[in-house]
Computed example of a mutant assay.
Amino acid sequence: MDHIDYKILSLLHENARVPISEMSRNIAMSQPAVTERLRKLEEQGIITGYRAQLSPHRLGKHTTAFVLFKTSSCNAFVAFSEESPEIVDLYRISGEYNFLLKVCTETTESLAHFLDSCHAFGFSMPLIVLSTAFENKSLVVDHA
């Protein structure tokens, strides 16, 4: 990858709907050249998809928490997690706990209800998010 690829990735991270024409003007390349670079980045698995970024608050999800979870039934807990709409991210981690979950719920009461439903699988330690300085920071640093 060169600095042009990094610039393309940076532009896409800012706005995945940026038109090819705007991208090509921004990096001073022809549209076919930018399209070809995008195709190669997709083929290499560097670009894995294009997504809309949703606002949890506008969707009524006002409580976000990270939950450390300890279980001896990992497969059953993963299956439970896949079916739980409250869990938006699930990470297998090392240490005393097996998993780190990012959970979005309507209220702290609905968070408590969700945590109660998890107790059949093990123990949890919730960490409620008070504020967010930034999220989804770009993995790309322009190497110009």
Results as ranks from 00 to 15, higher is better:
54 L>C: 02
55 S>A: 07
57 H>G: 01
57 H>C: 00
59 L>V: 10
59 L>K: 14
59 L>I: 11
60 G>S: 02
61 K>S: 02
62 H>C: 03
63 T>I: 10
63 T>V: 13
63 T>H: 06
63 T>Y: 08
64 T>G: 04
64 T>Y: 04
64 T>V: 05
64 T>R: 09
65 A>F: 10
66 F>Q: 13
66 F>M: 09
68 L>Q: 08
68 L>G: 01
68 L>S: 05
69 F>C: 04
69 F>V: 10
70 K>C: 03
70 K>E: 04
70 K>W: 10
72 S>G: 07
73 S>A: 08
73 S>D: 10
73 S>H: 15
73 S>R: 15
74 C>G: 01
75 N>R: 13
76 A>Y: 14
78 V>L: 03
78 V>C: 00
78 V>Y: 03
78 V>I: 15
79 A>F: 05
79 A>Q: 14
80 F>G: 08
82 E>S: 12
82 E>F: 12
82 E>V: 08
84 S>W: 04
85 P>H: 02
85 P>E: 00
85 P>N: 00
85 P>A: 00
86 E>R: 03
87 I>S: 04
88 V>A: 00
89 D>C: 10
89 D>N: 14
89 D>Y: 11
90 L>C: 08
91 Y>P: 02
91 Y>N: 02
92 R>H: 14
92 R>T: 00
92 R>I: 01
94 S>V: 11
94 S>A: 12
95 G>A: 11
95 G>Y: 15
95 G>T: 15
95 G>L: 14
96 E>I: 11
96 E>G: 03
96 E>M: 13
97 Y>N: 10
99 F>W: 14
99 F>T: 01
99 F>N: 03
99 F>E: 03
100 L>E: 07
101 L>T: 05
101 L>M: 12
101 L>K: 05
101 L>Q: 08
101 L>W: 10
102 K>M: 13
103 V>E: 09
103 V>T: 02
103 V>C: 07
104 C>M: 09
105 T>W: 06
106 E>G: 07
106 E>H: 07
106 E>C: 03
108 T>L: 15
110 S>Y: 03
111 L>D: 02
112 A>P: 06
112 A>Y: 06
112 A>W: 05
112 A>E: 14
113 H>M: 02
113 H>A: 05
113 H>P: 00
113 H>T: 05
114 F>I: 06
114 F>H: 09
116 D>G: 00
117 S>D: 06
117 S>W: 09
117 S>F: 07
119 H>C: 06
121 F>N: 02
122 G>E: 06
123 F>A: 04
